[in-house]
Design a protein around this nucleic acid. Structure first.
Lengths: 259, 259
DNA sequence: ATATGCATGTCGCAC
DNA sequence: GTGCGACGTGCATAT
């Protein structure tokens, strides 16, 4: 029945499978197909995957995943918003998924099907993630001593050519401070990025500017590069920032600063 | 039986589910559990996901995925190499996944299980992807006129502080050319990346250097930035590069160039 | 709609 | 092991 919460077919014929898949599409079920298949993808790039046993998952929002029996990442996929159809052709079960913008298509061709499952999943649970780079920004703005005693934030996410400065403010001596925040070990790339940003600022503002990279750590050989460019580093762990935010329940920044 | 290719339980009790899951772990099956659950993650960041119906997938290489009924991406996950165990606690079925380096853990707590499936998947099919940035490199090296008439590639992936140059060579006038290749519309970042690479080269080599960004297109306002830094742009589509490579079956670069 | 930058990014490859 | 850059990156946000 279409209203069932779960439909599972074990070792169905291709004809049986195609009916179950069409029903899953019609009733917007979460579809799982396991079986021997090959896959073709054409779009921004092209790919082929020779025969083997995989999972095909198609969700009701139009996302598609092909998972091999190993690996975190899908070998082929289609983001949500794709449209699908299924057909039997030359004794094979073909599942087609197409999306526009960019135009891309995935075709999964099953020679045999181990299992078809159509699930009616209901999920409205809230997802909350802590310790992002944004959390680090907020923590520094709310508790500037996390960065440095006497630091006074002035603004954040400020647009300056050629990009954005994460946070800027003044230190205890009134010196201008530009802060670039990274939630992971900072790399050479990050140092160069910061260097690029401060050059135009130094040129524009006619006073001393401190540029500080804030991150949990510095990549191995980056310290000397950083120093040679006149930049500073301040160690700060995203987890410690998350703790600060937990204490202060409401952390709407608009209340504290004018951007 | 443990040797079965597929085991599927529909609406199992938690006790039945836990037995099936343990068997799946023991026999290195691809495991799918559908049911009402909440999820906690702690590691580089932290997250909580309140109750709802999802798919839990655990592969035999130790990767874990929690998929909501919408979205291409898993809401929680663990890359391959994690280790798992399952237990019933307080009338809930808990699946724990832990990895080291970095230390991270995911706990999926089911209050009810809709389906448990353990699949013995066999997959050795080859996966081939065309039209990568690497394909573009190879195409230019094999058919330099794709870049420019008279271009003579000399080397590629050459290490120069502070990074790598994709391709370098000489143009028809013997002028040195540095090429940075991108498979997508080139952004401001890409321009800055190229700029930072050529600066030290210009300083070192005591002759004129052309720096060219090769990509299918340039982002809107990047053209002026590019020009102001004395860089060039050459439009090239990764798909056209892929075509060149298909014509020449064997494209081992070692035969043509010394790196 | 396009551009820009973050991500629990993951992954592969070179050192 | 660490660093570094690509990825069919996806994704949200700001313009």
């Amino acid at each position: 029945m279409a209203s069932e919460k779960i439909i599972v077919l074990k070792n169905p014929s291709l004809a049986e499978a195609v009916v179950a898949i069409e029903k899953a599409f019609a009733h917007r079920r979460t579809l799982i197909v396991a079986g021997d298949c090959h896959v073709h993808y054409a779009g921004r790039a092209n790919s082929t995957l020779e025969n083997g046993e995989r999972l095909l998952i198609i969700k009701s929002d139009g996302s598609l995943l092909v998972h091999r029996p190993t690996g975190y990442e899908p070998v082929n996929w289609q983001p949500s918003g794709s449209v699908f159809y299924v057909e039997v052709k030359d004794d094979m079960l073909e599942v087609h998924g197409v999306r526009q913008k960019p135009h891309e298509s995935v075709k999964v061709t099953f020679s045999s099907v181990l299992m078809v499952s159509a699930l009616n999943l209901s999920d409205s649970g809230e997802f909350i993630l802590h310790a992002s780079e944004d959390d680090m920004h907020r923590a520094i703005l709310l508790k500037p001593e996390l960065f440095e005693a006497g630091f006074k934030p002035i603004s954040w996410e400020k647009h300056v050519e050629p990009g954005f400065v994460d946070i800027y403010g003044e230190d205890k001596d009134g010196k201008m401070v530009i802060i670039e925040v990274k939630r992971r070990t900072a790399s050479k790339e990050n140092v160069l990025q910061l260097a690029k940003y401060i050059e135009p600022i130094k040129a524009k503002v006619n006073r001393e500017v401190r540029a500080v990279l804030v991150a949990p750590a510095l990549a191995k050989d980056v310290g000397t590069l950083l120093a040679s460019m006149g930049l500073e580093f301040k160690a700060l762990d995203p987890k410690d920032c998350a703790k600060v935010l937990k204490k202060k329940e409401n952390h709407k920044l608009e209340k504290y600063f004018v951007n």
